[in-house]
Design a protein around this nucleic acid. Structure first.
Lengths: 216, 216, 216, 216
DNA sequence: TATGAATGAGGATTCATTCAT
DNA sequence: TATGAATGAATCCTCATTCAT
C-alpha cells in the first residue's frame, strides 16, 4: 500500500505518536468523573501509564490538556451528523430519528457525553474554551438541526415554527440526557431507561412538528 | 451632642441573625460564577463584607457552606409550583403555561438558576449533595409535572404518553435554559431571547400533548 | 470577725474574686492533659464556666495565664516541706520518709503533679518561666533536700556523699513518678503501684545513705 | 577545564535515599528544642535544606514525621544495652556501670536524649505514639535492667529487693538527666556536671544494692 | 464586669510545574 | 524522549485576641 515498512516492530510496541491520545483518553475519563479542578495531573499520568513530566512534553499545562480533551472529543461527533443530513433522502421525520439514534450510539452513551457537563461547568473560568465550544459545536449543531427543520417545512412534512428558538428547545433533552448520565444517574433507585427516554423524546418532537396532513 | 463625633467606624457590628444569609448570598454568586473549587473563601468573605474567620462561625467548612447554599436556594422554588398545581382550576394547558412562566420569573431568570449547573458539575464530588438534590428537587419536580400530565389525560385534554419518561424530556429544556444563561449566554452574538425560547417550548410541548379534539 | 456583711448573698453565688482561681483551676487541668499549645482558650473558658472574653479580664494573654497556672500551683508545695525540715526532731531517715510521703499526698497524687511535665516541655519556649521554676522550685527543693542530707551527715546517721549531685539524683525518682502518672500511666497493662514505688525508692535511698553503724 | 564554569548551582540535586534522614535529623533538633506544636514545618524544611513540599514526599504529614523521628531515634539505643547484658561476664556492679556509661556516651549526651521529653510532653496528644514508646522502649529497658538485678541477686552480689518497682526507681535518674539537659540546663548558673551526677547515681545505686559481704 | 461576635495572622497541606538526569 | 524529585504559590482552616454591647 504505502512505503515498505523497514522495521517490523513488534505489534505491542507503543508508537510514540499514540501518546497524546493515550493521555487525552485518560484525562477525559478523569475530567468527566471529577471535573477540571478536582482532577490531579498525577492521576492522569498514572492512568495513562506515563510519568507526570511526560504530560508536559505534549501539553503546555493543565488548561491546555483540558482544552485538547474537549477539542479532540468534540468535532468527530458532528461530522457524522452533517454528512447524514446532507445526503439523506428519506422523510425528515426519519432523518430526525436517525440523527438522534446515531448520536446516542456514537456519543450519548459513551464517556464523551461527559464533555458538555465539563464545558458547562467551566465556561465561566475558560471563556475562550466556551467560545470555541459555542462556535464549533453548538452553533454547528444548531445549524444542522435548523436545516433539518427547514427541510421538513419545505417538503410540507413539518409545520411552520419559530425555528431559531425551537432548535434550542429541541436539542435540550439530548444534552440533558448526556449530562444526566454523568451526574444524577447513580442516585436513581430505578434507573431511567435511555431508550425509552429517547422514544418519548422523538414521539413528542415529531408529534409537535408534523403537519396534520403529513404521513410518513 | 457635643464635639463632632468622628465615629471610628466600628470594626464590625453585631448582625448575628442576618449573617448566614449574607454569606450564602455572596457564596451563591461566586459558586455560580466560578464553580466550587475555583471559589476562594477569601472572596466569599470579601463579597459578604466579613472576614474569613467569620465564615467559620456559621459554617463548618467550605463543603458545608456549599451545601447550605444549595439547600437554602432550592426548596422555596418548588413550593410555589406545588401549591399552584394543587389548586388550579383552569385547563391543563393553561396550568402548564402558568407553571413555566412562574418558574421563569421566580427562578429561571435569577441567580438561583445557576444552582442546577453547580450541582450537576459537582455531583461526582459530593454524592450526598447530589442525592439530596435528586430526592428533594428532581423527584419532587418530576412528580409535580407528572401530576399535571395525568390531570390533562384524565380530562381528555392530553393524549396518552409514556408519562414517566416524558416528564424528564419535558423538563429538560427548562433546565437547559437555566444552565445556558450561566454558561454560554455570554458567547452569543445575538443573545437568545428567553421569552421566545419559552414560547417555542410551550408551543412544542402543548402541541405534542394535545389530543386532536382538544380545544382550549 | 471582719466587717459586717451587708448582703447575705445566697451561698451559691460566685464571688467575683473567686474567678481567677476558677479559671486557673480549669486551665491547669487542660494544660496538664494536652500541653500548652494544644489547649484552646475556648475550652478553658468553657470548663471554667465563663466566656472567652472574661479570661482577658484576669490574664493578659495565654502565656500569662499559663505562667499564672504554674506559679500558682507551685509554691504552696514547698512551704510544707521547708517548715517540716526546719522543725523536725526525729531521725533524718524518718524526716526523709515524712517528706516523701507528705509530698505524695499533697502533690504527687494530684493534678498539680502535671506541672513539672508542662514546665519541662515548654522550658525552651518560655525561658523566663523555666528560670522562674528553676529558681523558685528546683533550687529551693534541692536546698531543702541538701539540708536534710547535711543534717543526717552531721548526726552520723548518713555517710559522706557528693551532696550537690546526690540531691539531684535523689529527687529524680519523685519527679519521674509525677511525670509518669501524666504520660505513660494509661499505657500500662498492670498499673504501677505508687505506694510500692515509693517504698522501693525510700528503701534504696536510705539503704545507700545509712552508715554501717547507724540505727534508727 | 576550558572556560571557567559558573555552575548555576542546581536548584536541587537528587538525593532520594539520603533525604528522609536529613529531614528527620532536622526535625529531631527542632522538635526537641521547641516541642511538637511550636515546630513549624517551614523551619524543619529550611534546616534540612529542602522546600516545604519536599517534606510531603517522604512523610504523610506533621504527625507522621513526628512519629518517624521518635521511632527512628529510639530503637538503636536499646540494642547496644541488650547485647551487653547478654554477653557480659564480669560482676553485676561492673555491668551496671558499663551500661550507664555506655548509655551516657551514646545517648544521654546527644540530641537523642531530647526524645523522652518529647514523648512525655505529647503522650496525651498521641496515644498511639505513647503506646509504641511504652512497649518498644520502656518495657524493654525495664526488662533489661530487671535482668541485671536478677543476675546480681543470683550471684549473691545484690541483696533481695522489690525488683519490679526498683527498676523504675533506678532508671528515673537517668531519664531525668536526659530531660534536664533539654530543659533547665541552661538556667543553671553553675552547670551541673553530668559525670559527677552519674558517679553519685552509681554510688547510690550500687551502695544500696550490694549485700554486706559482697566485694567487687 | 461580662459577653461572644468578629477578626486576621499564621501554619499545614496540596498540586501544577520545572528541570537535572 | 522520559522520568520523578523538588519546588513554592495558593488556599483552607484554626485560634488567640479584640471590642461593641
Amino acid at each position: 500500500m504505502n512505503a515498505p515498512e523497514k522495521k517490523p516492530l513488534p505489534r505491542w510496541t507503543r508508537r510514540k505518536d499514540a501518546r497524546p491520545e493515550e493521555i487525552t483518553a485518560a484525562a477525559l475519563e478523569l475530567f468527566v468523573e471529577r471535573g477540571y479542578a478536582a482532577t490531579r495531573l498525577d492521576d492522569v499520568a498514572a492512568r495513562a501509564g506515563v510519568s507526570k513530566g511526560t504530560l508536559y512534553l505534549y501539553f503546555e499545562n493543565k488548561e491546555d490538556l483540558f482544552k485538547a480533551v474537549v477539542r479532540g472529543n468534540v468535532l468527530p461527533v458532528l461530522q457524522h451528523g452533517e454528512v447524514l443530513v446532507e445526503n439523506f433522502s428519506g422523510s425528515s421525520a426519519e432523518l430526525v430519528r436517525k440523527l438522534v439514534r446515531g448520536w446516542w450510539e456514537l456519543t450519548g452513551s459513551t464517556k464523551v457525553a461527559g464533555i458538555p457537563k465539563l464545558v458547562i461547568a467551566e465556561a465561566g473560568n475558560f471563556p475562550d474554551l466556551a467560545k470555541f465550544y459555542y462556535d464549533e459545536v453548538i452553533v454547528r449543531a444548531l445549524s444542522m438541526f435548523r436545516r433539518v427543520l427547514q427541510r421538513g417545512k419545505e417538503t410540507g412534512e413539518f409545520r411552520e415554527v419559530d425555528i431559531d428558538h425551537l432548535v434550542r428547545v429541541a436539542l435540550a433533552p439530548l444534552v440533558m440526557l448526556a449530562v444526566w448520565r454523568h451526574s444524577f444517574a447513580c442516585c436513581e433507585h430505578e434507573q431511567m431507561q435511555p431508550e425509552r427516554y429517547l422514544d418519548a423524546y422523538l414521539d413528542m418532537l415529531l408529534h409537535s412538528l408534523r403537519t396534520p396532513q403529513a404521513q410518513e
